Simulated scan of single mutants.
Amino acid sequence: MTTTDPDLAADIDACCRLSGEFTLRSGQISNEYFDKYLFEADPQLLARVAREMAQLLPADGDLLGGLEMGGIPIATAISQLIGMPTLFVRKEAKTYGTCKLAEGPAYDGRRITLIEDVITTGGAVRDATDALRAGGAIVDTVVCAIDRSPEGVNPLDDVGLEVRAVLTKAELDAARAAASR
């Protein structure tokens, strides 16, 4: 799937690709890191990403589920574009106050499209999916800004999730290569 914004990959790559040694959530070590907060903090770039992600949403969704923390600003931006309510999904339920896993409308029996910033192995998405399903939600799709997983591999196939990405690592690498010519 290719973005309809032809310059988005180059702009995201220039904005948020960092070089060095980074430990990913999965525990993997990487010599590059896509700091999604750099594009999420830029209102114009965030709006462009949100527009592209909105085009990838399944038609039968009831709620967006923005994953803590990076998925929340994206889900909020998409929600404002399309008018769909949003859940803010925590990594784990609060131990105080309402003790909720997800803040927002009730989700039991509703179809949630998860919104994530970057997926490599899908650990955070997998955890959220399991928790939301245990609460009665129907979760079968995640839409992300960047899919870093190996090309042709769905890291969330084991939990029956379809991954839809605005950009893949290969597309970002191609944008980087084109910029250096």
Rank of each mutant, 00 (worst) to 15 (best):
D60E: 13
G61K: 06
G65A: 02
M69C: 09
M69P: 05
G70N: 06
G70W: 06
P73E: 05
I74A: 00
T76S: 14
T76A: 11
T76E: 07
G83Y: 14
T86V: 12
V89M: 01
K91Q: 10
K91R: 15
E92N: 09
A93V: 12
Y96C: 03
T98E: 15
T98A: 12
C99H: 13
L101F: 14
A102M: 07
A102D: 07
A102Y: 07
E103Y: 14
G104D: 12
Y107H: 11
R110W: 10
R111W: 09
L114S: 01
I115E: 04
I115A: 02
D117E: 13
T121A: 10
A124V: 04
A124D: 15
V125K: 00
R126W: 15
T129W: 08
T129P: 07
R133F: 13
R133T: 15
R133G: 06
V139D: 04
D140R: 11
T141I: 07
V142F: 08
V142L: 07
C144N: 02
A145H: 02
S149L: 08
S149Y: 15
E151G: 05
V153E: 09
N154T: 08
D157W: 10
D157K: 12
V159N: 03
V159T: 05
G160F: 13
L161S: 03
L161A: 02
